[in-house]
């Protein structure tokens, strides 16, 4: 085993853990579409940053995803008569349009741009691993520090708002972290695939767990398992795209959780 293998496994585990943890809140708030929307914003950001000749195009991804997240935070369903999911769909279509517009404008290295859609472990560098680890630790710290506020936001934003929780502030912070986490993991997991890594481990945890802490730990662990197993398959096959392997593994994990709940007749 060379050091690249360990680096890939480590990066994969951290990416899986952080997206699994994000998923607890995204799935719980019933807006799984946010993953696709923000990751497409990040893709559009990378492509346009490349077109503009920015040295490190990841900054384009970070900027685009954070701007998109903040736009989502600005949608107040009670004021705009716009459901958050409808707002997401509109933003998603715009980001998709921008992504394909950018892809049309890219003359060289189109395959690298397409690689953003599917993800590849070949993108993993030591620097990538450091960045995603710092981001994952920041996300973990946020969920610990704002644990009580995030719980009530999950349960009901109306109750949170009506009873004096600073819900807009916490929600904005969360969405910003969402944008940052997704953009730093984008190249490795892939813009199309990251969606299921957010949704599947968390949905599986919601199937089998009781209590918020148990959901958080299980989703983080299942996210980690999805990426590690998916990466192992991708690594040894040498030709299967990372993102696809991760998605299939995470879907299988969800199926197992759902079947387990059904067979065990798990009572709450």
């Amino acid at each position: 085993m060379d050091s690249f293998f360990y680096l890939v496994m480590f990066a994969g585990a951290v990416a899986g853990a952080s997206t699994g943890l994000l998923g607890v809140y995204i799935v719980g708030m019933r807006m799984p579409f946010i993953g696709t929307c923000i990751s497409h914003a990040a893709m559009a950001g990378i492509i346009f940053a490349s077109l503009l000749g920015i040295e490190n195009p990841i900054w384009g991804a970070v900027a685009a995803s954070v701007i998109t997240s903040m736009s989502l935070a600005a949608i107040r369903p009670e004021k705009s008569r716009l459901d958050t999911n409808v707002g997401l769909a509109i933003l998603f279509s715009l980001m998709l349009g921008l992504t394909f517009l950018g892809m049309g404008l890219v003359q060289d290295s189109r395959s690298e741009v397409l690689g953003l859609l599917w993800g590849s472990i070949l993108f993993v560098r030591q620097r990538t691993a450091v960045i995603i680890t710092v981001m994952a630790l920041t996300l973990a710290a946020f969920t610990i520090v704002f644990n009580k506020e995030m719980k009530v936001l999950l349960f009901s934003r109306s109750i949170a708002a009506a009873t004096g929780v600073h819900e807009s502030f916490v929600y904005c912070l969360f969405l910003a972290l969402c944008g940052l986490t997704l953009s730093v993991n984008l190249k490795m997991i892939g813009g199309l695939m990251i969606f299921s890594l957010i949704t599947n481990p968390a949905a599986a945890a919601y199937q089998i767990c009781r209590g918020h802490k148990s959901v958080v730990l299980t989703a983080t662990l299942l996210g980690m398992l999805s990426t590690v197993i998916g990466f192992l398959i991708s690594f040894y096959s040498k030709k299967l795209p990372t993102g696809a392997c991760v998605v299939i593994v995470s879907s299988a994990i969800f199926a197992i959780a759902a079947i387990y709940r059904h067979i065990a007749g798990k009572e709450d």
Binding site: M29, L154, F155, S156, S158, I159, R210, H212, V215, D268
Partner: peptide, 9 residues
Amino acid sequence: EYNSELPFT
């Protein structure tokens, strides 16, 4: 206005 499907105790 609240999400009663989450496994909160």
